[in-house]
Amino acid sequence: MIEVAGLHHDYGGQPSLVDIAFTLAPGEKVVLLGSNGCGKSTLLKILDGLIAAKSGRVDYDGQAVSPSTLKQPDWRRRFRREVALLFQNPDVMLFNPSVYDEIAFGPRQMELDDVDARVRHWAGLVGVTEFLDRPPFTLSGGEKQRVALAALLALEPRLLLLDEPAAALDPRATGWLVDFLADLPVTLLVTTHNLGLAPELGQRALVLGEDHRLLHDGDIEPFLADTERLIAANLAHVHRHRHGGLEHRHWHGHDWQ
């Protein structure tokens, strides 16, 4: 479905992605792990055709994805309908006067006849029906994220790219999101730096190291058991622990919220 080869990117001379290559098959649920600043968000934006990579290729169903190829209207229409990106900060996606219009924005562009039914269906599934008449910016962070998710899902995309979707959620909302995503019949690529959450989101992990290279591509469980590589990826660290007067050091993966 997605094929990435030899991808390099940098910001003003500072590398942000180095020699990235992987493929995503239809129906896979994949976790993209990496510490802050290792290039996860940049990679998602390149996959979504928002940023042009400095070199390398991204193909979606065999067709090249980039800001320049997406200028072609037919290709853009198809790609934007089938691939959706949830930004880490949902504020940047929401601009319509009401939650209803926000969710209807995509279906209306498609000129579908069942806009109203779609809006109510997805609003109900993510649990924002009570806010349909409110302007999105008056909602809380977690509510905004649900609205943004419903707005993307209303087009029934094939591939869903999610950037740190749990970063702003409390434990209950995180649990809901994990179950919701597991039941969703889409191909999924989710970024997180939360080790506790990662195995809940997918069976396969792509891990970006601090050198901005792909450190691991494969089953998530063996990687999570490999302490040295976790420390190398800056996903775990060593520090002192105090337990009842005893002090010792061991590696540690923090599940930040």
Partner: peptide, 16 residues
């Protein structure tokens, strides 16, 4: 972040 606002609209635009 303003750059992201532009990208946010771009990523949701099927047509112009």
């Amino acid at each position: 972040t303003l750059d992201e606002f532009r990208q946010g609209l771009d990523s949701r635009a099927l047509v112009r």
